[in-house]
């Protein structure tokens, strides 16, 4: 058995900003392999976004364990002993996001004042690569996602599908171990959504990057290698299939 890329054990998370606390995750245990192209499905409010945010290190679980590529990610209950330690934890999470994780958002979240190429380049400049390498690699990946010739357009001058391609390129340009995508096709028409999903699968197969994404589109679920169904913050059922 290959070691897990993402190891989740008894993860809990609740939100306390309303009148009554909302338990978004109630004990999720899940082991995601490097080769997984995993879809999280479930009705709205079942906890998909919450789980993806925690996996992507932009949010913290209340308790439970999370390990990304062997790196333990602390939960909130592992209270830091000092301010310095708290800062150290934050710094580590930022570093994990910068180096190991690629994000794809439902509403693309490109920086409107930057061109397609600059949007992709930003992910690389954070890694302190030389300007030449940044330029070269961001061009290359834009070609790979089928945007050759559109490198100098700004997001406003691109269609939704093209914007999401830029976002896919931005997530992948740094060769992350894991790509986290929260409903990447929800803002696209079905045909464009299908093509984005094809793109993601192609890259998954070519590069072996682990993908975890959420959706409630059955056609998208059909294309996943593994399907996890969430309901009320718990894992309901799991299906495995061979990728076609």
């Amino acid at each position: 058995m290959t070691p897990a890329m993402i190891e989740i054990t008894d993860l809990h998370k609740s939100y306390h900003n309303g009148a009554t606390p909302v338990q978004a995750l109630r004990g999720i245990t899940l082991s995601i392999r490097p080769s997984d192209f995993l879809a999280l499905a479930g009705p709205s409010g079942s906890g998909k976004t919450t789980l993806l945010n925690i996996i992507g290190c932009i949010d913290q679980a209340d308790r439970g364990e999370l390990t990304l590529a062997g790196i333990p990610i602390p939960s909130r209950n592992a209270r830091p002993e000092s301010r310095r330690q708290a800062r150290e934890i934050t710094r580590q999470q930022v570093a994990v996001r910068r180096k190991k994780i690629g994000f794809i958002f439902q509403n693309f979240n490109l920086i409107p004042v930057l061109t397609a190429q600059e949007n992709v380049a930003i992910a690389l400049t954070l890694l302190n690569l030389s300007p030449e390498e940044v330029f070269h690699r961001s061009r290359e990946i834009l070609g790979e996602v089928g945007l050759e010739g559109l490198e100098n357009r700004r997001p406003g001058e691109l269609s939704g599908g093209q914007q999401q391609r830029v976002a896919v390129a931005r997530a992948l340009v740094k060769n992350p171990l894991i790509v986290v995508a929260d409903e990447p096709t929800a803002n696209l028409d079905s045909e464009t959504g299908a093509s984005i999903l094809n793109l993601m699968r192609e890259i998954h197969q070519r590069r072996g990057t682990t993908f975890v994404f959420s959706t409630h589109d059955p056609r998208v679920m059909d294309r996943a290698s593994r399907l996890c169904l969430l309901r009320d913050g718990t894992l309901q059922e799991e299906q495995e299939r061979v990728l076609l």
Partner: peptide
Amino acid sequence: REIGTLSALGMSEGT
């Protein structure tokens, strides 16, 4: 939201 995006990409608070 752009700040959130940059932060998710791994841009540090200082930057």
